[in-house]
Amino acid sequence: MNLNSFVMRLFKNKVHFSAVLLFLIGGCNEIIEYSPYKAGVKSPDEDLNIKAMEQISEFSQSEFRPFKLGLVGDSHTYYDYYEKQIRQLNKHDDIDFVVHLGDITLSGIYREFIWFRDITAKLNHPMITIIGNHDYLSNGEYMYQEMFGPLNFTMVYNDCLLVFFDNVIWEKNVEDPDFDWLESVLEEGQDYRYRFVFSHIPPWSDQFNTGNEYYFNMLMDKYNVDLSIHGHTHNYRYKQPYDTGPPYLVVSSSQKGEIFFLHVEEDGFYPGREDY
């Protein structure tokens, strides 16, 4: 059978078959999926944190100016609830940007990342996303780095130091968080007006052993961190659990139906909580 007769036969006999195929290819988003364990994204979905930070830095000032952050976390696969959170955040025009405190997926597989991206794209503010323990599952660790960028990073906004720190332990086969990196960035950041640290797991929670727990708080205390912000436990907390060190804020998971804020003012800062 030569090529010509092959094509003729395809068009004569299999026209319906081909039409359905073409419809499927054109009609569905992400129709080709190589593996749920794939760690790679198509442009423009790569380095979303880096792009968000570039966008944020355009309206950052060199001296202090009050600002307001939106905070969400642990959206997992609570997609309907997460959509509501995004809609609620869009009602606040005074938010400078939003931070997601990790666990953007349930199993760290490909389409969970794609669905998160699709919902987050509806947000009117830039969003910075940190990695959570669930995002480490399967090849999520690599997919996160393709889609968002490095695991540990810092940003200076309106003369405030914002540290984004990956403190997942068990999913890295019981590897301690990179405290040396955290210490070095905090040491250099002593001259800023405020220092805020964002990490997924609160130090009193399951994955931290006693040594890591006190070491984490010791660093917060030693380098005058003003507030440590977390997710992971799915419930709201705002407390100062240790004799020394900063207050800790834990934001609840998406299905609790609340969004959080961090108001940073001239004379201090305070968290906000809004249910809807």
Partner: peptide
């Protein structure tokens, strides 16, 4: 993907298939 199709409204039938 089927699990999320069942338990969320967001994940509709067209979002779970691949070719």
């Amino acid at each position: 993907y089927i699990l999320e199709f069942i338990r969320t409204k967001y994940v509709t039938i067209d979002k779970i298939w691949n070719l």
